[in-house]
């Protein structure tokens, strides 16, 4: 495969990635690429290792085998300083939100902004207000994470992930716990971020509607075989995947018996 020259350079390249917790193998031999401006979805059953894969991609966990590269540079073998530089370009929303609980929402967003360089206080305030407004939380600057609802925490987490206009945005189940309208708004937001800022976005999600709406490529993690189930455009996978588990998943278990 590697002999075929790639037209668009891959933003993220994962080669032979095996992920383990101690002796328990979560997934083995994952091979995929994420291209510039992709909205790439990681899907699979609950507990199959999606969050684990995300944590490997952002460098919080070390691969047991295999490598991860960003823009062609090997991330797994890089030294800590280089890795920190790479990670700085990321925005991450964690499954639990992971807002800093001793800081207000405003501070949650301004702290990462201040870290990236000196910003005048007025600009900083405006930036924070803008990011919160993008996720529909305008005016919540002075609330603490304990004072807002679960869905609001998710959205605040997304606002924080977008704080530094990241090159690569990782979202772990951003839609879970949102009502249908907010969920729809979120899809819109993700599409616009991609189109207007040119970010590449990696999302873990179960929401079939938003998978088909926004994603152009997806990977399916098969919990039965602990390996990569399928890779490709979600609509194609739904109708033509050779892997029955994938068709089943993408058709909510009510699949036509054979691929059309």
């Amino acid at each position: 495969m590697s002999a075929t020259p790639e037209l668009t350079a891959a933003k993220v390249t994962v080669k032979g990635l095996t992920m383990t917790y101690g002796t328990q193998v979560v997934m083995h031999d994952l091979d995929f690429e994420i291209f510039d401006k992709d909205i790439f979805v990681i899907m699979g059953g609950s507990g199959c290792g999606k969050s684990t894969l995300l944590r490997h991609l952002i460098g919080l966990l070390e691969p047991a085998k295999g490598s991860i590269s960003f823009d062609g540079k090997n991330f797994t073998a890089a030294d800590p300083a280089e890795r920190t530089d790479t990670v700085r370009r990321f925005g991450v929303m964690y499954q639990s939100g992971a807002l800093w609980s001793s800081l207000t929402l405003g501070e949650n967003i301004s702290v990462p902004l201040e870290e990236s360089g000196k910003i005048p206080p007025k600009t900083l305030r405006d930036l924070v207000a803008y990011k919160l407004a993008l996720v529909g939380l305008a005016g919540y600057e002075n609330y603490y994470p304990s004072q807002i609802s679960g869905g609001m925490k998710k959205r605040a987490g997304i606002a924080r992930a977008m704080a530094r206009d990241p090159d690569l945005l990782f979202l772990d189940e951003p839609g879970a716990g949102l009502d249908p309208l907010s969920s729809r708004r979120l899809d819109d937001l993700i599409l616009r971020l991609r189109d207007s800022q040119g970010s590449t976005i990696v999302i873990v999600t179960h929401e079939l509607a938003s998978i088909f709406n926004i994603s152009n490529r997806a990977i399916f993690l098969d919990s039965a075989t602990h390996s990569q189930g399928a890779l490709g455009n979600p609509c194609d996978l739904r109708d033509h995947s050779e892997n029955p588990a994938v068709r089943l998943f993408l058709n909510r278990g009510t699949q036509p018996t054979s691929p059309r």
Binding site: V92, A98, L99, R164
Partner: peptide, 13 residues
């Protein structure tokens, strides 16, 4: 437990 320390790390802190 709330992944807040991981969040610090991924922001380069």
């Amino acid at each position: 437990a709330n992944e807040e320390i991981d969040a610090l790390r991924t922001f380069g802190f």
